[in-house]
Amino acid sequence: MAKSTEKKVDELSFEDAMEQLEVIVEKLEQGDVPLEEAISMFQDGMQLSKDCHNKLTSVEKQMDQILHADGELEETDFQEEEE
């Protein structure tokens, strides 16, 4: 992601960020990346992961607002509902 041709992390769509994260994970799993490059890739991957998490959290909040037609906001913990 250090390449100047790539978008900044916060400008990427969720799908693009996930795709870049998958590429980073695949390269790191191969194990033939020099240490300094691996550290940089890991940092980029962590930033992509954080960005994806933030985008998902934002969408969850938007869905909460949409699902409550009466206009009242009611917090929903999606993790509790999955159990």
Score class of each variant (00 low, 15 high):
residue 18 M to K: 09
residue 13 S to A: 03
residue 23 V to D: 13
residue 55 K to Y: 02
residue 17 A to S: 15
residue 45 G to P: 00
residue 7 K to Q: 07
residue 28 L to H: 07
residue 43 Q to Y: 07
residue 22 E to T: 08
residue 27 K to M: 01
residue 18 M to F: 00
residue 36 E to L: 06
residue 24 I to F: 12
residue 27 K to I: 02
residue 15 E to K: 13
residue 79 Q to G: 03
residue 27 K to R: 06
residue 77 D to T: 12
residue 34 P to Y: 03
residue 23 V to Y: 01
residue 82 E to G: 10
residue 33 V to G: 01
residue 54 N to A: 14
residue 14 F to P: 05
residue 32 D to P: 03
residue 3 K to W: 05
residue 9 V to A: 09
residue 53 H to L: 14
residue 65 Q to G: 00
residue 74 E to K: 15
residue 21 L to N: 05
residue 82 E to L: 11
residue 58 S to N: 12
residue 67 L to D: 11
residue 78 F to E: 11
residue 41 M to P: 00
residue 19 E to I: 00
residue 52 C to A: 13
residue 25 V to T: 02
residue 23 V to W: 01
residue 8 K to S: 04
residue 67 L to C: 11
residue 81 E to Q: 13
residue 69 A to F: 15
residue 71 G to A: 09
residue 56 L to Y: 03
residue 76 T to G: 06
residue 21 L to M: 04
residue 65 Q to T: 04
residue 19 E to R: 08
residue 1 M to I: 07
residue 11 E to G: 01
residue 15 E to C: 08
residue 37 E to K: 11
residue 76 T to Y: 04
residue 17 A to F: 07
residue 42 F to P: 00
residue 71 G to T: 09
residue 75 E to L: 15
residue 81 E to C: 06
residue 24 I to C: 13
residue 32 D to E: 12
residue 50 K to F: 03
residue 66 I to N: 02
residue 80 E to T: 13
residue 28 L to C: 12
residue 72 E to D: 04
residue 30 Q to D: 14
residue 82 E to S: 13
residue 9 V to P: 06
residue 79 Q to D: 13
residue 30 Q to S: 09
residue 64 D to S: 11
residue 48 L to E: 13
residue 63 M to F: 10
residue 5 T to C: 06
residue 77 D to W: 15
residue 82 E to Q: 10
residue 3 K to C: 11
residue 24 I to P: 12
residue 52 C to K: 09
residue 54 N to S: 11
residue 38 A to F: 04
residue 25 V to A: 07
residue 67 L to G: 14
residue 41 M to Y: 00
residue 26 E to F: 15
residue 39 I to Q: 11
residue 19 E to S: 08
residue 33 V to S: 01
residue 16 D to L: 04
residue 73 L to K: 10
residue 22 E to G: 03
residue 63 M to Y: 06
residue 28 L to A: 12
residue 17 A to E: 05
residue 46 M to K: 05
residue 13 S to R: 03
residue 54 N to H: 14
residue 43 Q to C: 12
residue 41 M to H: 01
residue 7 K to D: 04
residue 56 L to P: 04
residue 75 E to D: 10
residue 21 L to S: 07
residue 14 F to V: 13
residue 4 S to W: 12
residue 28 L to T: 06
residue 78 F to A: 07
residue 75 E to F: 15
residue 14 F to K: 15
residue 45 G to N: 03
residue 44 D to P: 00
residue 40 S to V: 10
residue 46 M to Y: 05
residue 6 E to R: 11
residue 32 D to Y: 01
residue 72 E to R: 05
residue 58 S to M: 10
residue 21 L to W: 02
residue 70 D to R: 00
residue 34 P to D: 10
residue 24 I to T: 07
residue 45 G to R: 02
residue 67 L to Y: 12
residue 9 V to R: 08
residue 35 L to R: 08
residue 35 L to A: 15
residue 64 D to G: 10
residue 51 D to F: 10
residue 70 D to C: 01
residue 70 D to P: 00
residue 53 H to A: 14
residue 34 P to V: 09
residue 37 E to N: 08
residue 67 L to N: 14
residue 38 A to C: 03
residue 60 E to S: 07
residue 5 T to I: 08
residue 39 I to K: 11
residue 43 Q to E: 12
residue 29 E to M: 10
residue 21 L to T: 01
residue 6 E to W: 09
residue 29 E to I: 06
residue 54 N to E: 14
residue 66 I to L: 15
residue 29 E to D: 15
residue 53 H to G: 09
residue 38 A to T: 07
residue 41 M to L: 15
residue 62 Q to M: 10
residue 25 V to R: 06
residue 59 V to Y: 14
residue 41 M to T: 02
